[in-house]
Design a protein around this nucleic acid. Structure first.
Length: 153
DNA sequence: GCCAACGTTGGC
DNA sequence: GCCAACGTTGGC
């Protein structure tokens, strides 16, 4: 079993939005980066857990936990010109992009802010904290997972 | 809104 | 295959 971190802009889709979905689950669509796609397609398995991270907002940080409940399948939003993440180069034969389904597990009482994450020495090698990192899906080591959970109290 | 750091595109 | 130009992400 692996651990992950999934970024989302809360204005577009927050952890509360996920919790309010039927069955508290939804597809994680809109990944349009090959590195992120490959990790999702090749390494993300049913039962894996992921931190839900709020990005591009007043207080960015980890807000809770979700579980992968369906492994990668075609991201049909790439084929729909009305969709925000429409990709003109995607075809039904080669949709290019994929998505997984995730289910809400828990929301932390308080956000673990990026600022706090940066101050934790155990997380100094974390991919999220590396300069210039923009991946919206990234692996989290077991040690990092544990350290962040400990911060959640 | 600014800007650094990437990723992608396309001409050559 | 190089690389300049452009687009995007995301913290601040």
């Amino acid at each position: 079993m692996k651990y992950w971190l999934l970024k989302s802009e809360p204005d577009a889709f927050s952890i509360d939005d996920l919790r309010n979905m039927p069955g508290k689950k939804d597809h994680w669509d809109g990944i349009r980066n090959y590195q992120a796609r490959n990790m999702m397609r090749d390494d993300m398995k049913k039962g894996d857990l992921a931190f839900f991270y709020h990005s591009s907002c007043a207080v960015p940080g980890v807000v809770g936990i979700v579980e992968v409940v369906k492994e990668a399948y075609d991201d049909y939003t790439a084929l729909d010109s009305k969709e925000k993440y429409f990709d003109a180069k995607a075809t039904p034969e080669n949709p290019r992009w994929c998505m997984v389904d995730v289910k809400y597990k828990k929301k932390f009482k308080q956000i673990i802010s990026l600022q706090e994450l940066k101050q934790n020495k155990k997380l100094k090698d974390m991919m999220l904290l590396r300069k210039g990192n923009r991946l919206s899906i990234m692996p989290v080591s077991a040690g990092e997972w544990k350290a962040i959970l400990a911060m959640a109290g």
